[in-house]
Design a protein around this nucleic acid. Structure first.
Lengths: 256, 256
DNA sequence: GCAGGCGTTTGATACAAATCAAGCCAAGCA
DNA sequence: TGCTTGGCTTGATTTGTATCAAACGCCTGC
């Protein structure tokens, strides 16, 4: 591994508190690898030998059943992939595919488990990462079970705005068919949901979306801090445990 | 805490490998409490001060939004509740309610976090529990996004059979309206889904379900080890990492 | 420039699920 | 016994979503 890579890895949340010698154990046999867009990194059901850490690019996790498939989440840097499977030393439940050119750190699963055994701080960091991921899926599940597709889209747009510059113009990060699957609908219905949001001041042109009436959009979307992982709840001070928040396409919470 | 309670707690997966002095730290200030059926243990958004360990009874975790609510999972002994929130020291994303009389061990969150810092084996056990929970929700999510309601019911019945005695008669563990919400449908549609499964040999009488044509039911359900957490995949030997499996109403995987 | 391909949009239709409204049934109780 | 209650079922209807089909726009490669 190159020195510049080591520096970047050092900054990952899961390695923040780790002693130097443990860091060496954890990253023993680790290497950074580059993948082109559209690469299948991992198929669901595969045994997992490496922990993947996404340093650059976007990766989609998706699931398949009976000739259907659905995008479960989309990860952006810096995120771990399949940490749960590594911790349990078991098969992956989701497939992973690069959506664009990616740079990924691959760490042998054994090294991760050994480092956890040797350093409680590292094991705690892993726990925090997993706890954040767990809560991410729970939020996602509430989103799917409690809202209809237009409401999900509206909240997605508001979340995009919140993690961006907060202006009234947001850019979609993915192809619409990918976004549709992530939001649990068909591409056709994503189109129609966008059309339905016209009356809330939403205008789409390619991947650029203009939100000209945030109040109306919020009235329809009814964003909720227990589902949508952004922005502190009304008037609270930022800085406490849960106010520091981070979004990865309705993905996971940021472990502290 | 009574000596008999201590013995039971000792057997919990997360305390299996823990040194005696750490066990004492972790359970400092812990106590067992009994709750009647229908008790709200925790409201979503509440700060979480205790880790709950369900020793007896059933607890439902549910989420709310905009006057709707949905059952996210149902836990049976022995399970931890809201471990993720305890690890991150943050607010709960789901409400918890007892479905029947329950016996619950309550451990101060501070004690858990301290014990994790002191003992890497305990921190690893927490990681495994969280990893199992994470994978449980992922399975649940795939179930919801990839299957229609009748398919979900069919798989639920097969899962019940698998964790039971494997006979052709299974007992539903919950009221039908709770089951309906858990499976992501209305009570009315649960009725209709049961009716639709008649042609696969499914007959319902109250909470007793007779499955007289497993082959037909499986043909419709198409159970998948990457969604339905029971039974080893075809012909594999039980005993390896993931074959030892355990179901809690499509809940979580058993941490080893 | 033009042809082809692919992602997207639009419309028509079919299907699935939620909702609304009765009615049923068994348990609890006066 | 008769009454009420709550959970469950059944039917009619509406709403939401998927599917099918066609057309459009855009980019690419020839």
């Amino acid at each position: 591994m190159r020195a510049s890579d080591i520096d970047r890895v050092r900054e990952l949340p899961i390695f923040a508190d780790v002693a130097p010698e443990i860091f060496r154990v954890a990253t023993a046999g680790a290497h950074v690898q580059r993948f082109p867009a559209g690469t299948m990194l991992l198929l669901e059901g595969d045994p997992v030998d490496f922990l993947y850490v996404l340093l650059e690019g976007q990766v989609e996790l998706h699931g398949t059943w009976n000739d259907h498939d659905t995008v479960m989440t989309i990860l952006r840097p810096v995120s771990t992939l399949i940490l749960a499977a590594v911790v349990l030393d078991t098969a992956a439940l989701m497939s992973a595919r690069t959506l664009e050119r990616c740079e990924i750190l691959m760490i042998p699963g054994d090294a991760i488990r050994t480092a956890m055994r040797l350093d409680s701080h590292f094991a705690m960091a892993v726990s925090r990462d997993l706890a954040g991921s767990y809560r991410g899926v729970v939020r996602n599940m509430k989103n799917i079970k409690l809202r209809n597709s237009t409401e999900r889209l509206a909240n997605y747009l508001l979340a995009l705005r919140a993690v961006g510059d907060g202006g009234s113009i947001v850019r979609l990060h993915h192809e619409k068919r990918v976004l549709a699957s992530l939001l649990g609908m068909t591409p056709e219905n994503l189109s129609r949901s966008f059309a339905a949001l016209n009356k809330c001041g939403v205008a789409v042109q390619g991947s650029v979306v203009t939100l000209s009436n945030i109040a109306a959009l919020e009235h329809l979307a009814k964003p909720d801090p227990l589902i949508d992982n952004y922005a502190p709840r009304g008037g609270e001070i930022v800085g406490d445990a849960d106010a520091e928040i981070w979004l990865s396409e309705h993905g996971r919470e940021k472990p502290r």
